[in-house]
Amino acid sequence: MRDFAAVAIIIAVIIVAFAAALTDGYYMDIFILTCFYGTLAVAWNLMAGLTGLMSLGHALFVGIGAYSVAWGYTAHQWSPLVTWPIGIGLSIAVAIVIGLLCFRYGLKGYFFAIATLACGEIAFFAVSATTALGRSDGIILPLAKNPELHLQFIAKWPYGLMIGSFLTLTLLAGQFLMRSRIGYYWRSLRDNEDAAEALGVNAMAMKVLSFAISAGVASVCGAFYAHYVAFVDPRSVLGVDISVQLLVYAIVGGMGLLWGPLVGAAVLVPFGMFLRNFSFLQGSEVIFYAVLLIGLALVLPQGVSGWVVGRIGKAKAAAELPS
């Protein structure tokens, strides 16, 4: 129950933040990007922190979602009702294929990370060379005749509502999974695969499931991004930058908990945008990220969320001690 309480508090914070962001388009922009990266980081952590599968290729699924929308809309005027399922389905299918291949040959740890990184990079270069997908120039999504049906809004708050709701949904579903048989199986695989298999856990099926869910969520984020920015190019949705950013958010926020990476994103995304306000600090957020990452690795190896939960646990234990 305590875990659900934590998620309930976080969802309350998301709602308050959304309400506060309604006052100003700039704040709404920060809110939207924080939710976008937060959702991605939570999905990534479902695999990495909770199943023990470190992916460095999640940009691939963001890209599949984004390009499904961009290509479907510009080439065929398909509505999101068509392009979103295509993106999600394609992402899940690709994740299952990559997963089956990697797990069949027992790729783990760094080897799995490198294999996923390679898949992401292959997609990056393949799309950069494909004329139908706009090559490295990308695709601009023009204004539709009936913009609302294509999720095109002048105001920013509908986008905030969309991504905020999706983040909330992801957290709730993720928390439900973590408290169910599947979540227990995932964590047992993370901690010791041999022991888990000997105790009846179908390792292959559970790992592929984790990969597929994570990829599906990432591709929804990518589809959302295409609508919000109305422009996709390989650099912004398929680049290795996204994959690495997720890693940074997860390490800063903490990988042991479902919502840990969200905390990382909530700290770093607004911070990065804040730094961009100062022209003499242009591009300096990378340096700040790096320093922060080194510092946190030394001081808080379980991340911010792990530290907070640890402090609460200690305070409780102290309160329960007989005086």
């Binding site: 048989r181 227990y184 199986y185 964590r187 047992s188 993370r190 901690d191 010791n192 041999d194 022991a195 888990a196 105790l199 009846g200 856990v201 042991g256």
Partner: peptide
Amino acid sequence: VKPFLGMTVADNVRVAAYV
């Protein structure tokens, strides 16, 4: 021994009980 070190003792056994 191959315990699931990131989980509580009860959760270790719970994984097996799901069979």
